[in-house]
Design a protein around this nucleic acid. Structure first.
Lengths: 341, 341
DNA sequence: CGGTTTAATTAAACCGGTTGCATTATACAC
DNA sequence: GTGTATAATGCAACCGGTTTAATTAAACCG
């Protein structure tokens, strides 16, 4: 065990006061005479004293640390949200510890250990929708939790939740394509049932079906393809769709990354975009602008930012009522969409 | 101050032993009879006891936490390295706290506070080359530090450093272009003198000049352009280069992101790639593959991974000699390069 | 000026673990 | 059986802050 170079008692001795007074002086207690405080601060500066974090935590029960649980390796949109979190937290005095979820099994253990008061003061969860059996764990956690891009109906009113209305977004994209004149519209997304319990693709697909129905266009199962997230799998899915005898004239991809896969498939097959095929993505991450992709913009960075704000507010005032905020989306039309051939 | 629900003394009482024995049992001390240990573990499980981290830290002087200092908002390559760090650390019992550097002023403060034993046990620094005045701070830090994609000659032998040979990389790219027959080769990069003290662009430019010289091609200052990192600025730089009366037939960009900017400029000007203009990037991040960019691949993820390994090794055995590892690079030829027109 | 409030300060008891040292239980040898 | 070495355990002192209660100093009042 290594002893600290300068402790509060050293400061106390040198300033000719007791440790308690030094502590109060540093924590801006009004119980210290201004003159005494100045003397103490002088010594503190002279010795370059910084209080021991572990001791503070033990004594106060506060950790001054927050945790973020994030599936870091899944999608660029997740990184963008994380950036929002990191940026906003930089202005506060909280430290941020990052817990990456690499595979589904880690989830349980992670939730179990993290949600304890002596480890962190609060938790942010990005893009991991709780399963039914995790609801109790989350609602009974003894630290405040904020879900970003994650949602469970049973948690409304218990936790802060920040989402977008993916069903409405999916509807809007599909309606836009229908408005262009398309009737043969395909969908490429993640498996509705996936180990991380990502719900966005599922919800966007629902909006897609609703919009078709509303326009009186029958839903054709052969136009719906799902596969693991990522460009490669999306490309394969798109290949299948585009190889159909009566192939779609437009494809709605559940994310920009997948839309790029669709574009690659189109290029392989010699289809011109948007003349032969229209493609729409979702998220508006940087790559969308680069490849000129029409997409549904989400406020990714802002979602992280907002999550931190809510968490900090709750920490400052634990009686804050948990809210469910729905961030807006916005269609960004670029060069991958046009009327059907 | 909130008291913990279950403490080590509760366990001790219920198991009919002393707190010290419980502590030893949980830390696998050989000083505990197997039978006693089992009895204790049983109680621990029954009460769902987890030791208080703050108390452990205070008592042992170990924090079980590492910090990573990273300019999160600058480039995708940085994110990729961070992923390597996060992934590798998941297998250890260390927590990772992330410190984002958003602007140059934060650097100093960040280094000052982080490098203290009672905050973290070790520090990783990604892509931030120390300035001369920071060298002392780093070498006198009372925790081990590993630099990833960052380097200072005065720190050799004092800290672990993981880099690539950017000068050699720049030379190789330029040589490759010369081999294709190009003699009019431009360079688009970051300012050699930038607030974050990023050195990679500067070094790659040096390699570029060396290769030109070695081939007997005179260096033309009007073929060299620098501007803030990012696609936009690179596009502007490229526009300038391509507007020259005797414009270059190839452009070497200091990063993939910048190479994409160059491609955009070429498209604007109606130049075909690679027939009219060859473009080479650096890093091989995901976007390079998507746009079919010829580039110099770096082992980004691996650099983070390796950094963690070295840090963990040093923590386990403080006598470990600090090394300077140079990771290899590899030219990946795709569709943006060809012989000059 | 003595008595009473009020303001500052100190002393000591926490917080919940770990660990050196003393002590007791157990094993072993003679 | 006693003596001695060894294995387990208990006790209490840490670690370095914060905070309550007790104490002292300063201010106020009639």
């Amino acid at each position: 065990m290594v002893k600290q170079t300068v402790t509060i008692r050293d400061i106390a001795r040198m300033a000719g006061v007791s440790a308690g007074t030094v502590s109060r002086a540093l924590n801006n207690s009004p119980l210290v005479r201004e003159e005494t405080r100045q003397k103490i601060l002088q010594v503190v500066r002279a010795l370059n004293y910084v209080p021991n974090r572990a001791a503070q935590r033990l004594a106060t029960g506060k950790t001054l640390t927050l945790a973020v649980i994030v599936p870091f390796f899944t999608a660029p949109s997740v990184v963008e949200r994380l950036k929002g979190v990191v940026h906003t937290l930089a202005q506060s005095r909280y430290d941020l510890i990052i817990h990456n979820i690499e595979d589904p099994e880690q989830r349980a253990g992670c939730f179990q250990t993290i949600l304890r008061r002596d480890l962190v003061d609060g938790v942010l969860v990005i893009s991991i929708a709780p399963k039914d059996e995790e609801v109790r764990l989350l609602s009974e956690a003894d630290v405040p939790v904020v879900l970003i891009d994650a949602y469970h109906p049973a948690l409304t009113g218990l936790l802060h939740q920040i989402t977008v209305d993916d069903v409405a977004g999916g509807r809007a994209v599909t309606k836009y394509l229908i408005g262009l004149g398309h009737t043969k519209i395909g969908f490429v997304g993640d498996p509705a049932d996936n180990p991380f319990n990502f719900t966005s693709s599922r919800d966007r697909a629902r909006g897609y079906r609703e919009a078709l129905e509303a326009a009186g266009i029958p839903y054709r199962p052969e136009y719906y393809a799902e596969g693991p997230h990522g460009r490669r799998y999306a490309r394969e899915s798109a290949r299948r769709l585009l190889a159909l005898p009566d192939r779609p004239t437009a494809i709605f991809a559940a994310s920009d990354v997948q839309a790029v896969g669709v574009l690659e498939a189109a290029r392989e097959l010699g289809l011109r975009v948007p003349q032969d095929l229209s493609v729409v993505g979702y998220d508006d991450v940087e790559i969308a602008e680069i490849v000129g992709l029409t997409t549904m913009r989400q406020r990714l960075f802002e979602s992280g930012q907002r999550g931190v704000e809510l968490l900090l507010r709750t920490l400052a005032d634990p009686t804050t009522k948990p809210v469910h905020e729905v961030l807006p989306t916005e269609l960004v039309v670029r060069e991958t969409t046009g009327p059907p051939p």
